[in-house]
Design a protein around this nucleic acid. Sequence first.
RNA 1: CGGGAUGUAGCGCAGCUUGGUAGCGCACUUCGUUCGGGACGAAGGGGCCGCAGGUUCGAAUCCUGUCAUCCCGACCA
Length: 608
Amino acid sequence: MRVSRLMLVTLRDDPAEAEIPSHKLLLRAGYIRRLAPGIFAYLPLMWRVLRKVSRVVREEMDAAGALETLLPQLQPADLWRRSGRWAGYTAGEGIMFHLHDRQDRELGLGPTHEEVVTSLAADLLRSYRQLPVNLYQIQTKFRDEIRPRFGLMRGREFIMKDAYSFHADEACLAQTYAVMDRAYRRIFARCGLRAVAVEADSGAIGGSASQEFMVTADAGEDLILASPDGHYAANQERAQSLAEPAVPLAGGLRAGGAGEPLATPGQATIEQLCAGHGLQASQVVKVLLLLARFEDGHDQPLLVALRGDQQLNEVKLANAVSGRLGAKHGALLEVAALTPDSLKRAGLDPLPFGFLGPQLGDDLLAGGGVAPSFLRLADHTAAELEIFVCGANQPDRHLLGASWSGLGLSVEGVDLRAAQPGERCVHDPRQRLEASRGIEVGHIFQLGRKYSTAMDACFTTEAGSSEPFWMGCYGIGVSRLAQAAVEQHHDGNGICWPLAIAPFEVLVVPANVADAAQAALAGRLYDDLLQAGVEALLDDRSERAGVKFKDGDLLGIPWRVVVGRGAAEGRVELVERSGAGSHELPADDLLAHLLPRVERQRRGLLDG
RNA sequence: CGGGAUGUAGCGCAGCUUGGUAGCGCACUUCGUUCGGGACGAAGGGGCCGCAGGUUCGAAUCCUGUCAUCCCGACCA
């Protein structure tokens, strides 16, 4: 390809809409253009990158025995009602674009394809003899993100590879899950990305085991906590750690554990309370009030107890709540803090926030249009406290020396606390968690039988009975991956694509096209490279050399061949974009020198 | 949806406080000089100043409303 024919428009200034380096560079280098929030045109260079990523994904999925397919993006609401996800995905902050057709039928624009593929499987797969099957597709997904961000990182329309596997038993699912795990590691390595696998929350999709693949980069939206020995890594949403032991509270139980009143005027925060009375945060039980909204309209007040020095992990909380009430009330739509304002809106009496204790009665909920009793949850660290300080449920008053039984409460500990960097690891208390940031580019799940049961997707077993499929699902954000590659591979001058996914492999730059010797030699080398099967780009523009060098750096083509002053003597210069080095060599030696290197780099970071 | 900011040429911005002919840099077109790290000179083209009302002799500028975009939180590949 010739640059003069490439529709290349590069920008000298950073567009104001971009925040992170990869987004700025993709815009500046002419790879993408924004059409609306979260909606982008992939310009020809970008499309070449996306096709290369897709090709790697395709090759590895095919090698892992998966079958490529293409499923509809317009999906009938009925299908989603059968899985129970229609309301959760459309109402409230649901992310599915949905519409009515001319017959007034409801349709959704596919944010994911579990429903479609499960109904298809139910149709086609009748016998255990046909299993296992792993179907995948690479296509555009639509999600009405609450806040699209960072270019392709969080778009409302993006390219995804999604795969769904069907099995006769759990062991077979686990086997395919492991095969996908290996395939994913190969995919990211082949694309030249450093990625780490972390334990993850399975979120809205549901299911049991789940693992995310994170491209490490400072601009990543996710916080990863990992042990230095490499044996444990998890998304903070999911991470577990050992909390520091609580400092025992002096003075023992008071009033048989019912606690003695402690005057705490204006001490509404843990810090003020501790400072005022020489207490440690770990000696305090703090209480958070929240309201969980369910699909069926049920509004459930939550009373969450945490040890004073701990933070709530909202993902763990949401899982605990939907685990307890989801079966009865449908999807959990939202969990929000109860505030003085929201209490008033619900028609409830004001509460002494800052002085709440776990013994807060249900009676105050009466007449508020919400469930009449709290769902009471306590984190392990709070439940394990034998003697503690807590709010007295009156302004300016706490209780000293209370215990759970003394307050007349029985609590079961649940993991609700957010693990923090620096805390001890569960698998080895000598290790401490370290934090890093990552961009989630892949996620694999063992879904189990959630969807197949909901949608009545069954097959006949060897014994002749009918059972729902065991399912797995496996996603890769193709367009996100491409941008994540830029985030991981760039410098002050522009992009440094890993060769395996670069739009072109070699850029031939005649320093001065007006120089007949340079133009002729550059043209010859360009032809030779194409002949040799190298994806070459020739910068034939009558620009000054400096402009072409700057643009070349910005574009990030891995190799640059400069045909300049030495052209008359048949000498050219070879520059590797990612390295600082460059060296001169005879033009006749170029192919012999370059080809083995290009071939090696086409394998990305794959060893051997 | 809550909090913050911004809408002026393709991109980046000034002008607005104190109303009076719409500007700068980059990009684009033509000519000349230059030619290995975003050249220089000359000449040009391009604007419903987000939109709608209002105030005024007169509005990019003041007032009201509205829409859009971006940033901070909840969502996810």
